[in-house]
Design a protein around this nucleic acid. Sequence first.
DNA 1: ATGTCC
Length: 484
Amino acid sequence: MGNKIPLERVDANRWRIPRHYDKNMHVSGMVYADDELMELILGDNALQQVANVASLPGIVGHSLGMPDIHWGYGFPVGGVAATDAESGVISPGGIGFDINCGVRLLATDLHYEQVKGRVENLADVLFKRIPSGVGGDGMRVLSRDEMQSVMLQGAGWAVAEGYGVPEDLEMTEEQGCLQGALPEAVSQQAWARGRKQLGSLGSGNHFCEIQIVDHIYDQHAADTMGIGRKGQIVATIHCGSRGFGHQVAEDYIKLAESKQKDYGFELPDRQLACLPLQSREGQAYLGAMKCAANFAWANRQLLMDGVRTSFAEIFGRKARARDLPLVYDVCHNIAKMEEYEIDGEMKRVCVHRKGATRAFPPGHPALPEKYQAIGQPVLIPGDMGRYSFMLVGAQGSMEQSFGSCCHGAGRRMSRTAAKKAVGSKELLEMLEKKGVTIRVHSKNLLAEEAPQAYKDAQQVVNVVHNAGLASLVVRLKPIVVVKG
DNA sequence: ATGTCC
């Protein structure tokens, strides 16, 4: 079905889905891929979803698809869409179920030579200290007051509770807190789920990895981030808002679906259900989404503390935050109100990033002082067997993609297809052969995350680099993987 | 992603 879509080649890395393809489209689609990735993308219906998103009321610019794009709920994963702040809509499916799923990376001052004899020990301690698994409870149970504070203050709450240091907040997108969160817009069911889950990894593609700096593309930017030594050990955490954000998403997707007739929206897919940004319901979703985003930042802050404590336990470090500084934290499932130049005038828009990372260029006012000259760190986890990447945002993102780029390798197999194709035993053997030590809560879910189930992250990041959305800084190789 | 079906 995807191959019915007319694709116009723009250049080596970009393809247009012309607006005339479907009368519902208000704008064209723009998809970032080279020839090889486009072959994979044509294998599912993600391009149809890019075209569908172009029919959202008030969409501006292009409906965008990043090179890691694949099929998602209504919107593709790896999609970016901006809607007019006054006359446009917000679509909960355009943010996704795991609100503020995101990634953070910590540097260490350790070299692989200092760690290689303790790898098994490190894996055990991380697995012990980082709660994981489907439905898993977190590091602490929150009172109602504490839960409300987490929703309102995000990572700042966690730092005030002793999980980390104020410098961590400077190195977090939005300082780890979106203003304007509305706890009263969050259902009691979501409150109840959230109160048990703060400080937990969950399952699926979430992980904590210990990685080695494997290749350096940009020494100056790598040095600025404190990850400029080959063989240096870093830690990556990939996690979101757990059952809390999932419940918020579910509640508002249902609400939006029930309101489509009232607002006179006739969208090509009911999963695109949306709410006018300036409506009572639209503002309620935005306020609830911010609660979930803030919860996710507090969650990653607690998980990071677990990583620092693990390193302290093994390597005897006392000043943990100083020895393991946070390099940066980005979210990749979120809607943000931002300003861009569109057709020659500045416009305030709601940028839906679903499986897409903010990638602001050097000099952007939202960046901390430390990164003004190099641009925003952009963390791109690949798969557990091959590699992950650090990039920095480039000027092209402001001109082309509403300050956004890809968020990962992107699936090439569905979860069910991956489970059919890969046995958990052979996968564990393959990882061991590659020198990856793994601790996993549920072995039968692991196959869903097999490297074969993902595109080659190197190909994906090459496309955003060549298209000028972000620039390569370092490549990382996993040595320890902890998963749910 | 997810108390993977209220």
